[in-house]
C-alpha cells in the first residue's frame, strides 16, 4: 500500500543545516494501523508530512498504492490527497466559518460525491454529533471538534488516514473516547492508519509500532 525508500529531509543551510530524516525505509500494508512514536524532535511529524504529501523530501521515494507521490508536482499531490488521503491534526483545524456538518461536507463536495449531504449527516451521527451539526467550530468543545475532524478525514473513505497526535490537545477521558472512535472507524472502513504519537499506551493499540530517534527508524 505504501512504500518508502531512503527518505531524507533536512532543514536549514550550511552550518545551521539539521538533518531531520536520515534515510528512512518503510513499508505499510493495506488495512494496517501503524504507530509512529518517538521523542519530540525525533522527526515524527516531518515523516508524516512527507508521507501525506504535505512536504517534499530532499531525496528518496514514496509510493502510495503504486503512485510515486515523491515525484508529483504540488498540483498533482493536492489532487491525490483529495482522493486518497485523510488527515487528523492535533489542533483539530476545522474551517472556522463552516459548521460541523459543512466541515465534513467539504472534502465530499470538493470531489462532487453523490449524496454528499446525506453522507456527511451519517458521519456526524456516527461520531455522535448529529445534534451539533449546525454549530460553528467556535461553539464546539475540543473533543467535539476532534470528532468532527475525524468524520471529515474519513468522509471520502481514504485509502490511508494520517493522524498527528489526535488526542494531544484533549484531556485523558476525551482523548480515549476520541481514539476509540478513530480506531473503530478505521476498522469499520478498513482504512490504513498512520498514527503519530508519543503516547506508548495509545501506540500499543496499533497493529505495528515503529520508533523514530534522531531521524532514523530503530
Amino acid at each position: 500500500m505504501m512504500k518508502v525508500m531512503n527518505l531524507r529531509k533536512s532543514y536549514g543551510q550550511g552550518e545551521a543545516k539539521v538533518e531531520v530524516l536520515k534515510g528512512i525505509n518503510l513499508e505499510i500494508i493495506k488495512g494496517e494501523t501503524l504507530a509512529l512514536i518517538g521523542k519530540s524532535g525525533s522527526g515524527k511529524s516531518t515523516l508524516l508530512s512527507l508521507l501525506a504529501g504535505l512536504d517534499k523530501a530532499d531525496t528518496g521515494e514514496i509510493f502510495v498504492q503504486g503512485h510515486k507521490i515523491s515525484s508529483m508536482s504540488e498540483r498533482e499531490l493536492t489532487h491525490f490527497r483529495a482522493h486518497h488521503m485523510g488527515i487528523v491534526f492535533q489542533q483539530f483545524h476545522l474551517v472556522s466559518t463552516l459548521t460541523a456538518l459543512e466541515n465534513v461536507l467539504l472534502p465530499l463536495e470538493l470531489l462532487k460525491r453523490e449524496g454528499a449531504i446525506e453522507t456527511a449527516r451519517n458521519l456526524l451521527e456516527s461520531v455522535g454529533l448529529s445534534h451539533r451539526s449546525h454549530h460553528l467550530p467556535s461553539e464546539l468543545s475540543g473533543g467535539e471538534s476532534q470528532r468532527v475532524a475525524i468524520a471529515r478525514a474519513v468522509a471520502i473513505k481514504p485509502a490511508i488516514l494520517f493522524a498527528d497526535e489526535p488526542s494531544g490537545n484533549l484531556d485523558e477521558d476525551t482523548g480515549d473516547r476520541v481514539m476509540e472512535l478513530l480506531f473503530k472507524m478505521v476498522a469499520d472502513t478498513g482504512t490504513t492508519l498512520v498514527l503519530v504519537t508519543h503516547d506508548q499506551d495509545l501506540a500499543k493499540k496499533c497493529s505495528r509500532i515503529i520508533h523514530l530517534e534522531h531521524g532514523s527508524l530503530l
Partner: peptide, 14 residues
C-alpha cells in the same frame, strides 16, 4: 492563513 492551509491539505488547489 490556517484555514487556507487546511483547505489545501484537504485538496484545494492554489
Amino acid at each position: 492563513y490556517y484555514d487556507l492551509a487546511l483547505m489545501k491539505s484537504l485538496g484545494f488547489s492554489a
